[in-house]
């Protein structure tokens, strides 16, 4: 660990430069992807990004804090519906003010995504406050229950299309806002936020809660508040992923956010290693790619998928990385060990 120096204007300037470079890099990559890859592969690249957001966000509560949610599809649904709805209602006004085009689309999409994140965060808070007093299996089951209730609410909300789903106001369905640039920009933002939380005093306290809640309390850690905070942040990230997911297709249906979706998210973080951010990134990509590659296997696909999950749990329950992180020093240590 390096020391922590005084932060000067120069450091902030460096940060701004690096950030601009990253944004430009994503933009350039996006152009390359659009030009060089067929649409099918482009779709997988977008799904990878969305999965990373889902996995890294879920890992904050399930992996880092050790409070197991198996109902996050519900928060993804809140984000998806909120983003789609706000986007559709906002678009005409913004287009009138800024002129229709990429700028107006970008503004509408990101405002809608932020509203989606906010609302799913609020939903996370509302679910988290009563639920997080429970532990282990009980917490898992309550989150499952809440996830199903959220889905059933959308299923029965006429303004959002009930069971048929929400397709916006135009017959063409929801606008295709979701692009490489926006998905991967949000990937970077979400990963950075979660990483910075994890490696801070709050993050240490979250891990302490996972390791031994009673000892954490004896160290004056406000465990409930921290758990609720982590749950809320986690729900908000799921909401962003939901919003990005919504505008990848013409519409969203309640059945897109069934219990199976929550399971997918759990499989991602388990494959990579519960409690590891880099593991969650790997798991998210792995799931997007494998599920797509196995599409040819048709009905055998889901059987193999479930079998894989069971085998992983029996053979290597800690996943690829365990709670470790991939970093330069990790590779150095590996090399040194040989």
């Amino acid at each position: 660990m390096p020391g922590h120096p005084q932060l000067g204007t120069k450091d902030w300037l460096i940060r701004v430069v690096i950030s601009s470079g990253v944004v430009a890099g994503i933009w350039g990559l996006g152009l390359g992807v659009q030009a060089g890859l067929i649409e099918y592969v482009q779709r997988i690249v977008l799904l990878c990004g969305i999965n990373i957001i889902l996995a890294v966000g879920l890992n904050l509560i399930n992996g880092t804090t050790g409070q197991f949610s198996i109902g996050h599809a519900g928060f993804m649904a809140v984000g998806a519906y909120a983003t789609a709805f706000v986007g559709v209602k906002l678009a005409p006004g913004v287009a009138a003010a800024l002129g229709a085009g990429a700028l107006a689309d970008g503004v509408v999409f990101n405002v809608a995504l932020l509203v989606g994140a906010l609302l799913s965060g609020v939903a996370g808070l509302a679910v988290g406050v009563p639920s997080l007093r429970l532990k282990g299996d009980y917490l898992a089951i309550v989150t499952l229950g809440f996830g199903e209730i959220i889905r059933l609410v959308f299923n029965n909300t006429k303004a959002l299309g009930s069971a048929t789903g929400y397709f916006g106001d135009s017959p063409a369905g929801l606008p295709p806002y979701t692009s490489f640039f926006w998905v991967w920009l949000w990937v970077v933002i979400v990963v950075l936020i979660v990483r910075n939380i994890t490696f801070s005093q709050s993050g240490r306290s979250l891990i302490a809660i996972r390791e031994d809640e009673i000892a954490a309390e004896a160290m004056a850690t406000p465990t409930t508040r921290l758990k609720v905070t982590a749950f809320t942040v986690s729900a908000a990230t799921a909401g962003i992923a939901g919003g990005l997911f919504a505008h990848m297709q013409s519409g969203i249906r309640p059945e897109d956010f069934k219990f199976e979706k929550s399971i997918d998210m759990i499989v991602m973080i388990i494959i990579g290693g519960l409690g590891s951010i880099s593991g969650a990134v790997i798991g998210g990509i792995f799931l997007a790619v494998t599920l797509e590659l196995m599409r040819d296997l048709q009905e055998y696909r889901l059987v193999l998928y479930a079998l894989l999950l069971v085998i992983i749990m029996i053979v290597r329950p800690e996943g690829l990385l365990g709670t470790r992180e991939l970093s330069l020093s990790f590779f150095k240590r590996k090399a040194g060990a040989k």
């Binding site: 759990i266 059987v303 998928y305 479930a306 079998l307 999950l309 069971v310 029996i314 329950p317």
Partner: peptide
């Protein structure tokens, strides 16, 4: 999670 996996497996 194993139990969830077995459930999915049998379902599929």
């Amino acid at each position: 999670i194993t139990a969830i996996g077995v459930s999915l497996l049998l379902q599929n």
